[in-house]
Structure formats: structure tokens, C-alpha cells
């Protein structure tokens, strides 16, 4: 879907992105992870040409991004940012309809699409259509921001720390929604964050960046288990590493099939971290596990978490 090839960017003498290459496949949720100033946002903004590259090339869907006018390119790529940037003088419906209207969709189609997206983000359409951004909570604004980015049904979605400014509980809910939407729609998403927990939770692949380069690229579990160097080790953190591993591993991988236990079952696709949490609060070392349809499929035990 995206091929970034030897791309560089400098501001004065400072090289912000240094001959960076990265390929993101269709349907991936690739997280660019790094501390501030590592070049992750710059890389993201070069994909939709908000920042021009100094050298190298970027292709989206096989086509070099400089081959089409920047505005045409951007209308095909969803874009959501931390500060959201909703138009304060437009209603929620008008905000979401921005790109469809730029693309000259018929007004009935725009209306249907806005309703669809509001429902997807659990914002009751009759209530929310006519509201202005200042009437929404931070979490609602960010939902509208992401809905607006998805409005014209782009294949590719770029997100720059979209949940960094909301409170932890809202952030948790928004991450769950994004994971759900990613699974349901199969969009390709490039997601910038400095939050390792967020990256571990959402990513199919993580690119850890330092000084304009990718220092490690891999699946979340991969990076936790085999950090490529000291920077990555420091970044993912020795402290709490075990808990992070638990939060990435799934119950499904450690399931004892066929056994049974008492109590409220946990979900098969929940993390081992959630299992540990449930065991601690319920003072038990065995939990029943059910699949998505609610059928009991086996048991997870305390010993299985650590082996």
C-alpha cells in the first residue's frame, strides 16, 4: 500500500528524516513509535505531502505521490491529528462531510455517509448532526475527527497521536473503537505515537524510530522479546516489561482446551494481562474461557501465564 524509499528531510543543518525506507502492506496498522523529535510525524506528513521530501520517493497504491496534485492526493488519504482541528464554525455533520463535498458527492449520499459514521462511533445521529464542536467533550471531538478522516472511505488513514490529548479512560475507549474499526474495515493505517502501551495494543507492526531512522521493525511481541539494541530496550522499558508482554500475548495461545472451571468466563481473544487481572481480583488461579459466541472452550491457569 505504501512504499517509502530512501526518503530524507532536513531543516537547515538538522536531518530530521535520514534515508528512511518502509513498506506498509494493505490492511496493516503500522505504528511509528519514538520519542519526540525522532522524525515520526515528519515521515507521516511526507506521505500526504504536507511536508515535501528532500530526497527519495514515496508511493501510495503503487503510484508516486508527486504524480498527482497534492490536494487530490490528500482527498484520497484520511488524516487525523492530536489537536483534531474541527472547523469550529461548522456543525458535526458539515465537518464530517468536508471531504465528500470536496469530491462533489451527491447531497443524499453525503447525508447517508455522515449518519453511518456517527453510528459507527456510537454518536446518535439526530443528537449530534447539528451540534457545534465546542458543544462536544474531548472524546466526542476526537471521534468526530476520526469519523471525518474516514468520511470519503479512504484506503489509507494517517493518524498523528490522535488520542494523546484525551483522558486515560476516553483514550482506552477510543483505542478499542479504532482496533474494532481497523478489524472491521481492513483499512491501512499509519499511526504515530510516543506511547508504547498504545503501540503494543493497536499495532500489527511497530517501527521504532530514533534520529530519523527506523531502528527496529517488527510485530509487537517480537520487539518486546527481542529488542534490537539498547535504545529499543530502554524505550520499551525494562521496568514493567513482563506486564507489557502479558498485555500483548493472547489467552488463545495458552488455552487448556476441554477443561472447565467455575465463574464468569473471560474472552478467548483477551490478553494474558486481562486474565491475570481477573484472577487477582477474584482470588482464583483458574478461569473459564469462552469464544466469541459465548461457548466455553477451555481454561486458563495462573501457571500458563508465566511458562
Amino acid at each position: 500500500m505504501i512504499e517509502i524509499d530512501e526518503v530524507s528531510k532536513s531543516y537547515g543543518n538538522r536531518r530530521v528524516v535520514d534515508r528512511l525506507s518502509l513498506t506498509v502492506g494493505a490492511g496493516e496498522l503500522c505504528v511509528l513509535l519514538g520519542s519526540s523529535g525522532c522524525g515520526k510525524s515528519t515521515t507521516l506528513r511526507m506521505i500526504n505531502r504536507l511536508i515535501p521530501t528532500d530526497a527519495g520517493s514515496i508511493r501510495v497504491g503503487g503510484e508516486d505521490v508527486t504524480r498527482v496534485p497534492a490536494e487530490v492526493l490528500r482527498r484520497r488519504i484520511g488524516y487525523a491529528i492530536q489537536s483534531i482541528g474541527l472547523f469550529p464554525h461548522w456543525t458535526v455533520a458539515d465537518n464530517i462531510a468536508t471531504v465528500p463535498r470536496l469530491l462533489k458527492w451527491r447531497e443524499t449520499r453525503v447525508r447517508d455517509r455522515v449518519g453511518e459514521l456517527l453510528e459507527l462511533f456510537r454518536l446518535d445521529p439526530p443528537t449530534y448532526r447539528g451540534k457545534y464542536p465546542h458543544q462536544l467533550s474531548g472524546g466526542e471531538q476526537q471521534r468526530v475527527g476520526v469519523a471525518r478522516a474516514l468520511a470519503a472511505d479512504p484506503e489509507l488513514l494517517l493518524m498523528d497521536e490522535p488520542f494523546a490529548a484525551v483522558d486515560p479512560i476516553t483514550r482506552d475507549a477510543l483505542q478499542t473503537e479504532l482496533a474494532h474499526i481497523h478489524r472491521a474495515t481492513g483499512k491501512t493505517i499509519v499511526f504515530v505515537t510516543h506511547d508504547i502501551e498504545e503501540a503494543l495494543r493497536l499495532a500489527t507492526r511497530i517501527a521504532i524510530m530514533e534520529r530519523g531512522r527506523i531502528v527496529q521493525l517488527g510485530a509487537p511481541l517480537d520487539i518486546l522479546e527481542h529488542p534490537a539494541n539498547d535504545f529499543v530496550r530502554d524505550f520499551v522499558g525494562r521496568h514493567g516489561l513482563g506486564l507489557k508482554l502479558l498485555s500483548v500475548r493472547r489467552i488463545a495461545d495458552r488455552l487448556r482446551r476441554g477443561e472447565t472451571a467455575d465463574g464468569e468466563p473471560v474472552a478467548l481473544d483477551a490478553s494474558l494481562g486481562e486474565a491475570l487481572s481477573a484472577m487477582t481480583t477474584r482470588r482464583t488461579d483458574r478461569l473459564p474461557v469462552c469464544d466469541a459466541d459465548g461457548h466455553n472452550v477451555g481454561v486458563i491457569a495462573l501457571a500458563d501465564l508465566v511458562h
Binding site: 504536507l50 490536494e71 488524516y79 491529528i81 482541528g85 471531504v99 470536496l102
Partner: peptide, 10 residues
């Protein structure tokens, strides 16, 4: 931020 998002949407 409003200008940035406007540019980003094309």
C-alpha cells in the same frame, strides 16, 4: 490546527 487539518483533507 484547523488550518493543518484543512490542508490535510485536501
Amino acid at each position: 490546527a484547523v488550518i493543518e487539518s484543512a490542508r490535510g483533507m485536501g
